[in-house]
Design a binder for these strands. Structure first.
Lengths: 238, 238
DNA sequence: TTCACCATTCTAGTATGGCAGTATGGCAGC
DNA sequence: GCTGCCATACTGCCATACTAGAATGGTGAA
């Protein structure tokens, strides 16, 4: 996080820009878990007043990325496996409903658009472009929801998936290979194209459950980034 | 909205209190849809500064209850049938997953606790206590999610159901009778107690789809409270 | 050496002021 | 009567100042 002022457009509202930059810095571990930050500190770095930083902090707290402690300071939160698992549960429920509806309605062009995204994912995987792959993976899921007019559902998921995003950013060191993810995406699109709603649901559920098996490995590789182990996460994962 | 200062505890953070009071006033139509409000106006009424009011406004905007227009003012939004339908979709997906898990795991005491809530609902229905009934209905749904440790899922639903809350507040004039809702709750609990996950899901889906049939009647009874009719809502409701 | 007290510093939350954009009303000219 | 221009008022957004609570470090006494 060397140059934050580089990117603030004074023509647009400042708070959302600060929020986006900080979210990105947290997800990419430029602001590692455990980092102490303050309104004043961040305001100085961005060259803005504290107020919009405060607004950004409040939103980041809602996303589970920071903890604001009155009078004491704000801290980038460690990744909670429990929160990842909880968010995944909600995400699975919603995305299963989305693909169920996609398979039932089969909107014109949706399968083709998704297939094109998958082709781009393959290119990214070949090039070893992890960040690009993540972006395309997100475009895939977003394209699914928005392809059937479920923009609101996607916006809800966007609000809750920060922890999963952090895990996925860390996941290029031994977690699920990109080729496996691509295969899972293919299975989803295949079931949608075939109008097979139960199969589409099952494929999406399998896809989103992948994180449950890779999560312990990632946590082991980055123990400092995670909240200390809590057995409750394992129980709720069932 | 006569006496807002009545209720602000200066020992606690002010912004969340203002947000809660305004949310309540909007849901109960004390601040009717279309009302113009401003940071300065609300701040004067609560006897606080504009800053925490602004924070409350931002959160209310996220909940879809107000629209903040820079430089021009803030307005209590009319109820959008489309948004109700969109929120219902997400809610159905998540709550179906919750009851599915409840029926599979059958935590000790859950069915009994839910049955006790239903008994209280019956009392409220007999007494014609609509507001009390709404509170108990919400307790039922919250108790379900929290009863299986899905607190996070419930908190997500809380964040998106403001529009549905407004509709339900308006629904005591000809919409679904309380007795029908109680019957639906019973069916859900019965399926959970029997460990029949598919039946529990189906019962919850039926229950949450109830609003789709009553929504047009409510909108007809309160045309000024709703966004003008848009055919897209009917399409997305399928 | 340890503990208690005090001063200083830091923090988030709130209060107040300034700014740019928008809306409205009044007035003059055609 | 209509239109355009200007002055005024209002708005949200951001900047700055104030406040209360928490943390830390220094000092003196036991």
């Amino acid at each position: 996080m060397t140059d934050l002022a580089h990117g603030i457009d004074p023509q647009e509202a400042i708070a959302p820009q600060v929020m986006r930059a900080l979210r990105e810095a947290i997800v990419r571990t430029d602001l590692p878990p455990g980092t102490l930050i303050s309104e004043a500190d961040i305001a100085r770095r961005f060259g803005v007043s504290r107020q919009p930083v405060r607004e950004a902090f409040i939103k980041l707290q809602e996303a589970g990325l920071v903890g604001i402690r009155p009078q004491r300071g704000t801290q980038v939160l460690r990744i909670s496996m429990e929160e990842v698992v909880n968010a995944r549960f909600v995400r699975e429920a919603v995305e299963a409903a989305v693909v169920h509806e996609a398979a039932e309605t089969r909107p014109a062009g949706l399968a083709a658009r998704l297939a094109a995204l998958i082709a781009e994912q393959e290119k990214a995987a070949e090039a070893g472009d992890g960040v690009g792959f993540l972006r395309l993976d997100e475009a895939f899921h977003r394209g699914l929801a928005q392809g059937i007019g479920r923009d609101f559902a996607w916006s809800v998921l966007e609000g809750i998936k920060a922890q999963m995003d952090r895990v996925r950013f860390l996941s290029f060191e031994g977690a699920t290979p990109m080729a496996d993810i691509i295969g899972q995406h293919r299975a989803i699109v295949g079931a949608i194209a075939a109008g097979d709603a139960p199969a589409a649901e099952a494929a999406m559920r399998r896809h989103l459950r992948e994180i449950l098996s890779s999560l312990p490995k990632i946590a082991e590789a980055h123990p400092d980034y995670f909240v200390p182990r809590d057995d409750r996460a394992a129980r709720t994962a069932a």
